[in-house]
């Protein structure tokens, strides 16, 4: 399923074709590499015990870009996303091989400390998971453990700014001392986004952040993602093709643990090159 890539690129000019050639990887259709990457993944395999969940995936995440990952359930999107901030370390049986670099630094290097890595690669989970603490403490938690604030005033301003960016400030400014678990599902999810951006990460990973939300909250979060792109790099897993089309610049299609096709979002949704991608986005699969 990999020779289509070379066949189709024949349409491009000679020089262009040569350049594109360098940007492709075996097993994947489309340009997996970009000029200005924040994170680079090369030949990543992931195993849960004996079972292999990700097969030889190579992919770049560009600076100040939103990349969306789509694919049928169980194809390994979450697994791949969790590799990017080493959240898979928390699963005993999970083993990752291959190379993942952030700004040229190998994040699976034995000597690397995961604490600063996770501070600079934040994560928003599929199910909102606020801590059983006050709204204020939920946001302040990250800055506190990373020593990002000098005094109470500074911390207050970080909390306020994060909540504002997540579009939650107006709703909660009068009850910052109430428990975060008392918010509605959509508010909790925005709280978690605010919590993630409070530590000013460079990359934000979002695993189906809108799966539990109504259309209004979803629209708010999509707006937020668009804004965040100015300062952050974002990788988002989603089951909604419309969402992928709305928020992302690049789209990656996963199938059974393999990265099938990557490309500009417009191109993927208008003229997918791989048969599997086409089947999926036209609704014949998954």
């Amino acid at each position: 399923m990999n020779d289509t890539s070379t066949a189709k690129t024949g349409l491009q000019s000679e020089a262009g074709a040569a350049m594109k050639q360098n940007r492709t990887a075996e097993g994947t259709v489309g340009e997996v590499y970009v000029d200005d990457p924040r994170m680079t993944c090369r030949n990543v395999d992931v195993y849960y015990g004996e079972k292999q969940a990700i097969f030889d995936v190579s992919l770049d995440v560009g600076k100040n870009q939103v990349i969306s990952m789509i694919g049928p359930s169980g194809c390994g999107k979450s697994t791949f996303l969790r590799c990017l901030n080493r959240m898979n370390d928390t699963i005993d049986i999970c083993r990752v091989t291959g190379q993942i670099k952030m700004d040229g630094q190998d994040i699976y290097d034995g000597g690397l400390d995961v604490v600063p890595l996770r501070a600079s690669v934040g994560m928003v989970f599929q199910k909102p998971n606020p801590f059983p603490k006050s709204i204020y403490d939920n946001i302040a938690y990250g800055p506190r453990i990373h020593g990002l604030c000098d005094d109470k005033q500074h911390l207050d301003s970080i909390v306020e700014k994060s909540l504002q960016r997540a579009g939650l400030w107006e709703e909660v400014k009068d009850r910052l001392d109430q428990p975060g678990t008392g918010l509605s599902g959509g508010q909790q999810q925005r709280l978690c986004i605010a919590r993630a951006i409070a530590v000013s990460p460079e990359v934000i990973l979002m695993d189906e952040p809108c799966s539990a939300l109504d259309p209004i909250a979803t629209a708010k979060i999509e707006e937020l993602i668009d804004e965040l792109r100015e300062n952050f790099t974002i990788a988002i897993v989603t089951h909604s093709m419309q969402q992928a089309a709305r928020v992302s610049q690049r789209t990656a299609y996963f199938h059974l643990g393999k990265l099938i096709e990557v490309g500009e979002t417009d191109q993927i949704f208008t003229s997918p090159r791989h048969k599997l991608t086409e089947d999926y986005i036209t609704g014949r699969f998954g």
Partner: peptide, 18 residues
């Protein structure tokens, strides 16, 4: 205590003891 709670903290870069 739900695993999601731990993930939330680890995802922010908290250490185990934190």
């Amino acid at each position: 205590v739900p695993q999601a709670m731990r993930d939330g903290a680890y995802g922010l870069g908290a250490t185990r003891s934190e």
